[in-house]
Design a binder for these strands. Structure first.
Lengths: 212, 212, 212, 212
DNA sequence: AATGAATGAGTGTTCATTCAT
DNA sequence: AATGAATGAACACTCATTCAT
């Protein structure tokens, strides 16, 4: 069996164990057993527990950002792009709960090296949202631009709300990705003030066509 | 030295170590040393690592909810109450970053018993926000009520955004509690759509007078 | 409360705990609590765990040998004296099972100092039996005497059988001291060979009158 | 070095330490060091201190009963079988004093799980003796049978005497297995009463031929 | 390419024992 | 005469990691 395949099996096992038990409570024994290989092989391929964990974070971070990017078409208006991105995000986290636990909980909880790794991914997503907000402002002919730090804060808030809803959707019976995305779009785009007055944001009728 | 005092010293030390190292990486030795007592005394007063951690979570959860409640006056309009609550929340988390790490990260990452403890506090806060949204709807003469699940999702999103901004404010140089609260109020109350069109929500001029 | 009384209370508690938990598993905390005093007081009166245990052994050894001696009248024939001694022995061990556990099990199991203490008592009892056997031989006009070492072995065997029956009687439902003594007298005095042929030893009709 | 061999080495060391120090006073460190291995290996192979102790008890119980059975030929008369069994018993306990300490003292002193393990072996031996007594009664044309409980008591007494003599022989300079067996046969078979009148039981002239 | 065998270092926890009062 | 407060030292157990093959 080629090395690359074995390595993926190990990462699969590691993500599952890390996601469920947590980084420190996870034991290399358990991971090796779940991967169906001997422990020395895990060390031969992945060097150490820290390296293994880092590899998990990197792989899953890449997978998540890729999934979000794949769901968004750059030729559509800003609110549509946000809606598509959120839908993709909620769908991916719902399908890979262990990976989401690794990225959102475990990586941030066990010290700088790992937190930095996860922060890199988060920064990328925040940047994506920040660009979106900037574009939206331009589309609305808003001038002068919002202050840069305020935009950063808004993006931060939006991403935080999304993360929180992802966990909420994962643990609340029967909440779909579309529903979570819809709730968040109403909240973020329209604002509570408008919502109170009966103003709603409605999801576009047709689904986004993934580029390929 | 009386027992009650010693116990608080131990909890202080434990919150600091747990918050910085994480629950599993924290060693009872280190906590005892930081508290300036011997390890057996920690066990005599707090029974076990698990009980010690639980005690930390409970103490800090109580402190946080108390701080938020103390910042809010029930005789003011909904947006003002939200603003005051957020300001208190950001101020408290900024002043007790280790406690915030314990509540927001560590407690959720290390198994049901602890997660449940932190979830209880979070539930309380979400309920607080949920009531606020309901009140706001009534104040805006909105009839019929928003669907219950949608309100739950909105509260979840708002709390998630707040949590995220708390961490952001703690790690970004020079962001004050007022600034974080202001950003979130704009985001949550006005909505991005309005913001893009130049509509802003402005913090009330006078500070809230804590009941006394 | 006078010191002597307190000390006896502590020994009572200690015998109970040592007898039930075992020497090493017994904790000074538990003993102090059961005795209704603070731990430092136990140390003030009895110095250390080892000394406390030794004191227990001594007190119970004395009590046991006293009980046996009290049951035997020197003016009766040898078999009657043996019967009376055994009856007293079984009655005492049945009434003080924790003390018996301390003497027979715990003291012998935890190293020289304690084993020696218990051995001293046992030696006394073995000597008592040895004298009895010698007297019996004389009464039976047996000359020349049995070799000394053989007599020692016989006494050892008899005492061992008695110890074993004491535990057996303590743990078997409904076996009385008289019954245990009767079984042992048959075994020891008559011998299996005779028993097989229907020869029995019968307990004397009247009870022994304790000297007082 | 193959696992099975290492395991026996560990059990050897454990029996020695447990027999000399006692169960609770024995430390896993000491056992591992005496076995010439690291502590984790002891845990890898034997799981826990309790399991290790249980394994010791089981191994030595099996060895002892095997030795006794191997010394007895079922085609010989009852007294001869008893004599052979006792000789084998005393020889084995004399050669393995630590094992005898584990079985007779330690196992009975440290709680139900271990006591039950040792009791199982003892029950087997008592049953063996009980059958012997029954056979002897039949051989002596004794009819009707002795009451069942009396037989149980007799077997108990005999076994207790043997156990006691085993320890006596182990601690008294120059007492051989034959001598101990001889003393006990006289005591048990002939009875003190007959002994006093000069009646002796004599060991058979030729040694028993072990079946193969 | 892969593993059975083995360990150094460290953890949570307990307990006999002692001050200071 | 008696105790609340405190600890040094030790122990069972675990785990990431590495040889030798």
């Amino acid at each position: 069996m080629p090395r690359a395949v074995r390595e993926q099996q190990m990462l699969d096992a590691a993500v599952q164990i890390f996601g469920q038990r947590g980084y420190m409570a996870a034991s290399m024994d358990e991971i090796a057993e779940l991967a169906g290989v001997s422990k020395p092989l895990v060390y031969l391929y992945l060097n150490s527990k820290e390296d293994l964990f880092t590899a998990c974070i990197r792989r899953e971070a890449t997978a998540l950002t890729r999934a979000v990017r794949a769901g968004v078409r750059t030729d559509l208006p800003a609110d549509r792009r946000l809606w598509d991105g959120l839908t993709a995000f909620f769908a991916h986290t719902a399908e890979h709960p262990d990976a989401w636990s690794v990225l959102h909980l475990q990586a941030r909880t066990h010290g700088e090296p790992f937190a930095a790794e996860a922060a890199a991914m988060r920064t990328e997503i925040v940047a994506f949202v920040t660009r979106l907000v900037a574009v939206a402002a331009r589309e609305a002919h808003r001038d002068p631009d919002l202050p840069e730090r305020e935009v950063a804060g808004l993006a931060e808030a939006l991403v935080g709300a999304a993360e929180s809803l992802a966990t909420w959707a994962n643990t609340t019976e029967g909440v779909t990705a579309r529903e979570a995305a819809s709730t968040l779009m109403n909240f973020a785009w329209t604002g509570l003030g408008n919502l109170m007055r009966g103003v709603h944001w409605s999801p576009p009728s047709g689904e986004a066509q993934p580029p390929a």
